[in-house]
């Protein structure tokens, strides 16, 4: 998927969990594990590793939990 689309999707998820009680990065990671196919998670992890431009901080932190 295009990086722009991936960033948007990940940030949408983060926006929801950032608004919820509890540990947002962990819940984002749970969501990604439950709904994102491994190659999508890998793409996100690689993107974060490459700097993660445009991603919300909670997404970047969530990737550490994957």
């Amino acid at each position: 998927m295009s990086p722009e689309k991936m960033i948007m999707m990940a940030n949408q998820i983060a926006s929801f969990f950032d608004s919820q009680p509890g540990n947002a990065p962990e819940r984002i990671a749970d969501h990604l594990r439950d709904y994102w196919e491994p190659r999508m998670r890998s793409q996100l992890a690689e993107y974060v590793q490459a700097g993660g431009a445009g991603l919300k901080p909670s997404v970047e932190e969530a990737v550490q939990h994957l």
Partner: peptide, 8 residues
């Protein structure tokens, strides 16, 4: 592992 959704 979860699979791909249609858009994916």
């Amino acid at each position: 592992e979860p699979g791909l959704r249609i858009p994916n």
